[in-house]
Design a protein around this nucleic acid. Structure first.
Lengths: 248, 248
DNA sequence: CGGTGTCTTGACGGTACTCAAAATCTGTGG
DNA sequence: CCACAGATTTTGAGTACCGTCAAGACACCG
């Protein structure tokens, strides 16, 4: 049950990194499946742009005329409930794809948490690319399955762990995302607020804050400022998230 | 925000039903994308069998040598936590596909809740079929996206609704599954136990029982016995699940 | 340096969990 | 058809965890 161990049974492996001529993305996005010709073609069919923190990329119910490749930056996927509450479905990072759906409309809101760079690909072009390069379809299936597995893991966290365990699991998922991108899982930026973490984990923001305080007191988390987080003892954090007894 | 309204923005549409020569399944499973030749080929590459209630189809970590088409019956997908707790990821019904993964192993346990009939398709054959019939890949993407949307809906329920709302949302999801299969959403079998519903919704079985009692008292649910459930007022149940104020 | 947004911490209350026991259901065998 | 055993469900009582409300501390930015 170690999310950081990519060789764990059932864990989806990331494809080898590939450079996207237009996006410049070197991580395992959808482009990773394309050869040079495909990448070149795609680069003519995308519109790259800078986006600011807090900018909304799309909203649930908007017509899904395009999909978004997140080249650089962090984004939040969420859904609003009728009574005004919010459920964060997940955070997305460099190289992730946002807004793919088989239906006519987006099924979630997407909002940037940091400044960043995105590529918008029109849905028509994307469908054409899928038809032209069957390997892309295959890759899309992989991505879908990967996202499904992550969402199921999220469900386990929200459904069956208590507050401190949920926060520990969340931090580990961030560390995992870092590691998958070749960065250190022990120190990284965490641009989301306590409220957003709470809306991800099904907790009140105060409960999230208390959990962070407790983890800091135990030396499992450090926050040196500037949104940075350090996890000096990932193994212990993992043990906590898994509900194992701590002998510290 | 009405799960029973399939025309809702973003809601994935089911493909038209198609009869599978081997499975006999008439619902919108993966086979729905195949033409006569494909269906015929598939029927040579599957092993149909009867399964009893409580029978385990596969376990998390088992080598994913095959996938399972659930022809008839109800199954439970779940994951076990290190501390022995269980998270039910969802229930599956006639025509659903179980155990598809892009990794080497199953990522969840699958267990029958009722007697039923399944088709096992070897993974090798399935991959070959995917390669031969690109439309199948397309269909698989649709199914994956559909499953992802359902899991996200589940996440909203567990993360942001309280006990009675969760049970209401669960009943509505069952009604939705019935409707998608051409059956009445107002009366159906519910073969899962309170404990299993609790493990789906992140609740204790006693809390689920209390919620059912409350819904029964309000006349929103009837249980005439034999695992049958009736929902006389789906609109009111929906309003409850959405957290709207009831004026009854 | 002030203003705004975020975070932290405390106090209190409520929802849901745990423990427990009685009631109901289901299937089996007499 | 009835009796019985096991499983499931229901209901109650007490408690714990977490949500809500509130106030103060802190950080960031112009």
């Amino acid at each position: 049950m170690n999310p950081l161990d990519l060789t764990r049974p059932g864990r989806v492996q990331s494809a080898a990194p590939a450079a996207c001529t237009k996006c410049g993305s070197r991580v395992a996005g959808i482009c990773a499946a394309l050869d040079i010709a495909g990448l070149d073609e795609m680069s003519h069919e995308t519109r790259r742009s800078s986006v600011a923190a807090r900018e909304v990329l799309f909203r649930e119910g908007d017509e899904a005329t395009h999909i978004v490749m997140l080249v650089r930056g962090t984004a939040k996927l969420s859904r609003q409930l009728p009574d005004g509450k919010q459920q964060v479905l997940g955070f997305r990072f460099d190289g992730d794809m946002l807004g793919f759906t088989t239906g006519p409309c987006f099924i979630a809101d997407a909002e940037m948490l940091t400044d960043g760079v995105i590529c918008r690909v029109s849905r028509r072009d994307f469908e054409a690319m899928l038809a032209r390069y069957p390997v892309l379809q295959r890759r899309l299936i992989d991505l879908c399955a990967q996202e499904l597995a992550a969402t199921q893991e999220q469900l386990v966290t929200v459904g069956r762990r208590q507050a401190e365990q949920r926060v520990a699991a969340f931090l580990l998922s961030l560390a995992q995302a870092q590691k998958a991108r070749g960065a250190s899982p022990q120190a990284f930026e965490m641009p989301m607020t306590r409220a957003e973490i709470g809306d991800l984990l099904g907790l009140a923001l105060e409960t999230v804050s208390r959990a962070f305080s407790a983890l800091r007191r135990r030396g499992l988390v450090r926050e040196p400022g500037g949104n940075r987080v350090e996890l000096p003892n990932i193994a212990a954090l993992q043990a906590l998230a898994d509900g194992e007894v701590l002998d510290a």
